[in-house]
Design a protein around this nucleic acid. Structure first.
Lengths: 108, 108
DNA sequence: AAAAATAATCGTACCTTTACGATTGATAAA
DNA sequence: TTTATCAATCGTAAAGGTACGATTATTTTT
């Protein structure tokens, strides 16, 4: 019985997985996440110092990570303090490990 | 000692992680992977039947998944048989679980 | 009060992605 | 041999992503 168990593009869990993956889909954004993992806390300028990108570009990437829920950003005076968002990172972990174990079950 | 342990954009492992994530970064491609997980084997037409997308669009997504190494595609006469690529799926699993556990360690 | 510092946003240029229909080339069926 | 089938590719339009410098708003420091 090879039944198709509904694969819909607007399935919220598929959309969410794709959105998380999309946020990870650029080297700069992975690098930023790793950096935040090393330093616990970071200002935008700290990241700009380390990456070969303009401040406005870094700010853009931070915005993408924030709207995907993977980081938080809190204004502290003239700076903004960015941190990994534990909830988002856990969701990243669970969502993508669920997906890969689902896939591995049949193919490996 | 809060030392930065080299975060470079052209680090191959960062680039690879980003490339894998990018391949997962669209609902249609996640749906295709899940479909292949359910059916073990699929022709392009099977996928086109199930997804609300034109054949040429599905073909494009299959191409993206294939060049990311997540699926294989073998011509069988007039059709092409697509399968999950065990090596690619394992790499997806290990790469992204390594990343998330690295991140979880500091933030959670 | 003026100047400096920080980061968001704007404007812009360029490239990529996504989607479609049409076409093509290859194979299989009539 | 002709016709039908399948999927890749082409051409193209619209939308989105990536990068930069310049500008702006806010907050500190002087």
């Amino acid at each position: 019985m090879t039944e198709i168990i509904s694969v819909q593009l607007d399935d919220p869990s598929i959309k969410r997985s794709a959105a998380i993956a999309k946020a990870l889909g650029h080297p700069a954004r992975i690098a930023i996440l790793k950096l935040l993992g090393q330093r616990t806390t970071c200002f935008c300028g700290d990241i700009t110092e380390v990456l070969p990108l303009a401040q406005s570009t870094v700010s853009q990437h931070l915005k993408a990570l924030k709207s995907a829920g993977l980081i938080t950003g809190e204004v502290e005076g003239v700076r903004t303090c960015y941190c990994l968002n534990p909830d988002g990172i856990k969701e990243l972990e669970s969502t993508l490990s669920e997906l890969s174990s689902e896939l591995i079950q049949t193919c490996c």
